[in-house]
């Protein structure tokens, strides 16, 4: 069997879940002439962690950034197929992209706190989206920082610069900032790739705590991390979804040869 035939035979081993948080239906994406995603069919379960893995340039980040339409910032891009979030087609003309991004939070590879105070960083989203009274805002900020396991470390210096935090703390601040909008889905693009093992572990523990409340999709290059922390794993290769299933199965007995080769470190 040729490699391409093998690739096109996408297997989907997802367990039937009543209503997936995010669902891609024949979703393709182009940067200019270059097709980055080929008819992705993927249902991401709610209240679980799904890891997207695959070698560089396989389209996993493109897929992630299609879920909150961040790719639209790049000129000359187009897509086909559907992307549903809790049943709503987000590429439907009636979807307000600004509102969409309050429902779908995102954390980036490199922590990117604003050059403002810790408090203002977390309050940034709620201020624009609902502009609550001060007391309520204080509460939201505290809850978000607690959810991001950062409260105890920063509660005495909420009004000092966020740039004074360590790398791991900054990344948790970015998670808190995203949580303050109370999103239904949280997207993380290699959130721990610039962190040391201890900080990475904290982020992973944090995600484990958070999954009872929302759906988490994490792009990672770190297979051990995917194996440790995710419930489901999707393997992308050359812009196609090769295989998708529970992490246990994906890491122990994948159906596709290519998945096994990648996971065991024979390529990628």
């Amino acid at each position: 069997m040729t490699a391409s035939a093998q690739l096109s035979r996408v297997r989907n081993t997802t367990h039937a879940t009543p209503s997936p948080a995010v669902e891609a239906k024949k979703f393709s994406f182009w940067y200019g002439q270059k097709q980055a995603l080929h008819e992705i069919d993927l249902a991401v379960p709610d209240k679980a962690i799904t890891a997207l893995i695959g070698p560089s340039g396989c389209g996993k980040s493109t897929f992630l950034r299609s879920i909150n339409r961040m790719n639209e910032m790049i000129p000359d891009v187009r897509h086909s197929g559907d992307m549903l979030i809790h049943g709503d087609d987000i590429y439907d003309g009636s979807t307000d992209v600004v509102e969409l991004r309050t429902r779908v939070g995102m954390v980036f590879q490199r922590s990117n706190p604003f050059p403002k105070s810790i408090y203002d960083n977390v309050a940034y989203g709620p201020r624009i989206n609902s502009n609550p009274p001060r007391r309520e805002l204080d509460k939201t900020v505290e809850e978000s920082l607690r959810s991001a396991a950062l409260w105890d470390e920063v509660k005495d210096r909420l009004h000092s610069s966020a740039l004074g935090l360590s790398g791991g703390q900054q990344q948790r601040l970015c998670i808190a900032r995203a949580l303050a909008n109370e999103p239904k889905v949280l997207l993380l693009d290699e959130p721990a790739s610039a962190l040391d093992p201890a900080a990475t572990q904290r982020i992973e523990e944090l995600l484990f705590e958070l999954k009872s409340r929302l759906s988490i999709i994490i792009v990672t290059h770190n297979l051990q991390q995917a194996g440790r922390s995710s419930d489901y794993t999707a393997f992308f290769y050359l812009g196609r979804l090769v295989e998708h299933g529970t992490t246990d199965i994906m890491f122990t007995s994948p159906r596709e040869e290519r998945t096994e080769a990648y996971i065991t470190g024979r390529f990628g």
């Binding site: 509102e99 309050t102 990117n112 604003f114 624009i128 970015c174």
Partner: peptide
């Protein structure tokens, strides 16, 4: 990355430009 962070929090383009980009 700062630009993206503001957009990802649900800020519109002009607001991102004024509050984050110009301020920074």
């Amino acid at each position: 990355s700062l630009h993206e962070a503001a957009l990802a929090l649900g800020y519109s383009r002009w607001r991102t430009s004024l509050t984050i980009v110009l301020r920074t």
